[in-house]
Design a protein around this nucleic acid. Structure first.
Lengths: 120, 120
DNA sequence: ATACTACTTATAGTGTACTCCAAGTCAAGT
DNA sequence: ACTTGACTTGGAGTACACTATAAGTAGTAT
């Protein structure tokens, strides 16, 4: 059973300690266990959750959505359907965003091409 | 020579009138011409710029970056190199973001698959 | 004992991008 | 003449996601 400090988690995932505590306060992760002196001790399961949250945040899922998902998760098996619905909805939104971004990427590419061909 | 009201532009591009005025204040578009009574009259060139700005904003380019690009643009031909550099940098950042989002999309897909196979 | 470092909490502050509001102007319709 | 509706401005307010600060504690090194 591993035990990792907040500092180590912050370095491992390139998140600030403040952000990790903020995520915990918002219920996106944890609650994280504390040792006798009150410091957080992250465990394997916590790290998995943090990795998931970081990945989803970097994709633009909001704190509110992740909070809701985690709340449902903590409520147990009866919320499976709701969680699935939530994930599918977010997947749709993400798909749309990716499409927009790829469109913008193509436009940027085209504009850069024009610049390079001295047409601007 | 077309002349379009702010209302029509807002509807056409699904941006609020406040946002259009905000973009103008920040120098992302315009300055837009006004008629005798002080109302904005958007013209073709304005619309093209708005479309570009909207597209780039939806891809996550910041107001600050677009402002800088437009400022360079207004400074004339001598800033071509700087503009190209800026666009190439933003293209790189955009590429990274798309990669992150596609990774998240795959993870979401996988998770949804697990849910549907009743493995969660 | 003292200094140093890393942690804790609660709360305040920041940056970004809008979004809303108040007060006023203008043109058209009744 | 008066109301209605859409516009104008400057400035205040909001939402989101952190980020920083202050005050304190706990463990380690000298």
């Amino acid at each position: 059973m591993i035990k990792i400090t907040i500092q180590e988690v912050a370095e491992k995932y390139d998140l600030s300690k403040d952000t990790l505590r903020y995520y915990e306060k918002e219920g996106l992760v944890g609650p994280i266990e504390k040792n006798k002196s009150g410091s957080r001790e992250y465990q394997e399961a916590d790290l998995e959750r943090i990795e998931f949250v970081k990945c989803m945040r970097s994709a633009g899922l909001s704190i509110a959505v992740l909070k809701k998902y985690m709340r449902l998760y903590d409520e147990g098996a009866s919320t499976k359907e709701a969680r699935l619905k939530l994930l599918e909805k977010e997947r749709e939104l993400l798909k749309e965003k990716i499409d927009y971004m790829e469109d913008a990427y193509k436009k940027l590419n085209y504009k850069i091409k024009l610049y390079k061909e001295n047409k601007i």
